[in-house]
Design a binder for these strands. Structure first.
Lengths: 183, 183
DNA sequence: CATTAGTTTCAGAAATTTCTGAAACGCGCG
DNA sequence: CGCGCGTTTCAGAAATTTCTGAAACTAATG
């Protein structure tokens, strides 16, 4: 049974759910698991949140599709227990990976597809715009792939360096502009 | 009147809209403006997309709230014309800024708020989890703020460096671990 | 100041998403 | 097998979001 503060956190996650592309119940389930120091089974969740059993089942299925929860089993109990990873950075990685998969990759695929269909000599503004968008997405996802390969320690180190990185980038700037600038 | 390819792009943006947290019409309007080499007025959009005038009006309002379109005026015409920025990186910056504002900032605020309310001596797992989440969000938004200050040239330079940055981070790693590791 | 060209608001219709209870399903065990 | 315990599916109910046409509003113009 969550405390007052915990309840508020859970309700907040529920409300934010829609902005994050998940529904209220899924948000609440995630928050509950996130705060819990032990894995919970579906009935624990039903009790804590006061929603229907089937709703919890669907919510858990969705969280599994997002790779956001781990399925655990307890000795001599055949119920499924769920928990979130201890390591917060792992959660962030998963979140980014999944959102990229759902929100970026389909568009990149579509842009490439459309480019294939396009007659060689087409040369409209729209065509150029789409090509530029594709290039930008490729540049960003390429960068993402490389960062994703790094261990967490190095990633956090980079993060902490912050704008000190500017100095390093300083020399390179203007040498490889991605595209023409205004003037 | 958009070509076949352009239509497909527009429809794709419409479909993706829900995943991106905007609705179909807003997605389509944005795609249309993005591809157009000149600013369009509401009626141009109504004609191109075949949706109601009021729907377009609401969609444009929403895009303005997202700072994703610019309002233009033509000489001797009192209609409002809309366009998207030429510079794709500006678009990306806006997108990131707005999503942060809608999806991250409210949670950070809430976490701080809850922390204020928490009795000094509370020491549950949930409490620690929330504090850790707050710290992580602070670290990431801090990094974001610094990156956001850089001009596009330097940002792109960093992007292109990709995993070469690892070497730089190499020395720092393990010196400032954000948190204890597993073992 | 009435007209006209344009935009915005709004109440309800339409569509979509979420949630529920009931039924179906799966599986280990005696 | 058939019972008990647990999970999943599903059709429809409930809630929410999106879309529309009509009315209200705004401001330049003759």
């Amino acid at each position: 049974m969550p405390t007052q503060i915990q309840q508020e956190f859970i309700l907040h996650f529920g409300e934010m759910g829609s902005r994050w592309g998940i529904n209220r119940t899924v948000g609440q389930i995630y928050a509950l698991l996130f705060l819990s120091d032990r894995p919970l089974c579906a009935d624990d969740i039903v009790e804590a949140l006061g929603v229907s059993r089937s709703n919890v089942s669907m919510g858990l299925k969705e969280l599994q599709a997002w790779n956001l929860v781990r399925l655990r089993h307890q000795q001599g109990d055949r119920r499924d227990y769920f928990s979130t990873p201890e390591d917060m950075w792992e959660i962030v990685r998963t979140l980014i990976a999944e959102r990229k998969k759902r929100e970026i990759d389909p568009t990149l695929t579509k842009l490439r597809e459309l480019e294939m269909q396009t007659p060689e000599d087409t040369d409209s503004y729209a065509q150029a715009r789409m090509a530029e968008l594709r290039e930008l997405i490729e540049a960003m996802t390429g960068f993402y792939d490389e960062m994703n390969r790094l261990e967490t320690e190095r990633l956090v180190a980079l993060l902490k360096m912050g704008s000190k990185l500017t100095k390093i980038a300083g020399g390179a700037a203007k040498v490889l502009p991605l595209r023409k600038t205004k003037a």
